[in-house]
């Protein structure tokens, strides 16, 4: 589901933004843009296969409890 949604969104974004960027030959932003798009699709794929991706919430929780000596559940 997520994969399909991201594919649809990426396709729309390619039509709306990437094609004009390609035509204007704005290479820098073109590559950054496509890099992020690729990332989005990969995220969609991973979400559908229930792959765990490192999330910042656990490490930040541990960091905060380490520094301030708090017990957080």
């Amino acid at each position: 589901m997520m994969f399909i949604s991201t594919i649809i969104i990426s396709a729309a974004l390619i039509l709306i933004d990437l094609v004009p960027l390609y035509k204007q030959q704005e290479w820098k932003i073109f590559f950054i843009y496509s890099f992020f798009l690729l990332f989005i699709v990969v995220l969609g794929l991973l979400a559908d296969f229930n792959v765990e991706i490192p999330s910042p919430s656990k490490p930040t929780k541990d960091l905060v409890s380490l520094i301030f000596g708090l017990k957080l559940e």
Partner: peptide
């Protein structure tokens, strides 16, 4: 122009948060 992929990236990543 940059904001669009950034927002979608954030939205997609939020699922794993």
């Amino acid at each position: 122009t940059l904001s669009t992929p950034l927002v979608f990236f954030t939205a997609a990543y939020s699922i794993f948060l």
